[in-house]
C-alpha cells in the first residue's frame, strides 16, 4: 500500500517523542570531559620544566614561542611560554614530547575570544614569574659566591707562593 512506509517512519518518530531525551541543556548542564580529552588551554608547570625546548620543536605548526634566559650559572630558564592558541592543531605532540610532564590540557573547551590578539596565551603565571626571578637571583648569588671563593682561593694561593 502506498504510504505504508511513511506511516512506519512516523511511528518511529512517535515512539521517540515519548521516549528518553537525547539532548540536554547546555550550558546549564555540562558533560565531564574524558581523561584523554585534548582541548582548551595548555597548562604549564614551571617547577618541572628544564627549558629543553623539545615541546616547541615537536610542534608541527610553530604554535609555541619560548623565551629562554640563561642564568648566571649558565642554566636555562623559561621567562615566557606563549601558546598561540589560534595556530594550535590540538595534536598533543608537545605534551608527548615533554619528558618531564610539565604540560597538560586544562580541558576547558569554551575558549572562544572576541579578538585575535587574545588568543595568544602566556602560560607563565605570576607565580611562575616569581619562581623565575627567584631562580635567577639564586643563581646570581651562587655565581657570586663561587667567584668570591675562587678569588679567595687565588689570593691564598698567591699568599702561599
Amino acid at each position: 500500500m502506498f504510504g505504508e512506509g511513511l506511516l512506519t517512519g512516523m511511528g518511529v518518530t512517535w515512539k521517540h517523542f515519548w521516549g528518553k531525551k537525547e539532548t540536554f541543556c547546555y550550558p546549564e548542564e555540562k558533560l565531564p570531559m574524558t581523561e584523554r580529552f585534548r582541548g582548551g588551554h595548555l597548562m604549564f608547570d614551571h617547577t618541572k620544566c628544564v627549558a629543553c625546548t623539545l615541546c616547541s620543536l615537536a610542534c608541527p605548526n610553530q604554535a609555541i614561542k619560548l623565551k629562554i634566559v640563561p642564568d648566571a650559572m649558565k642554566k636555562r630558564h623559561i621567562e615566557s611560554y606563549v601558546h598561540l592558541v589560534g595556530r594550535c592543531l590540538y595534536c598533543n605532540l608537545c605534551i608527548e614530547a615533554c619528558n618531564f610532564h610539565a604540560l597538560s590540557w586544562d580541558k576547558n573547551y569554551a575558549i572562544s575570544t572576541w579578538h585575535k590578539e587574545e588568543m595568544d596565551d602566556e602560560l607563565v603565571t605570576a607565580e611562575g614569574k616569581e619562581f623565575f626571578n627567584e631562580m635567577m637571583e639564586k643563581a646570581k648569588a651562587e655565581a657570586e659566591a663561587k667567584a668570591k671563593a675562587e678569588a679567595d682561593k687565588q689570593k691564598n694561593e698567591g699568599g702561599d707562593a
Binding site: F2, G3, E4, G5, L6, T8, G9, G11, V12, T13
Partner: peptide, 14 residues
Amino acid sequence: QEYEDILTGNEIFQ
C-alpha cells in the same frame, strides 16, 4: 532497523 523504518521504507525516499 530504525533507519530501515524511517528511510528505506519511505516511498518518497525510494
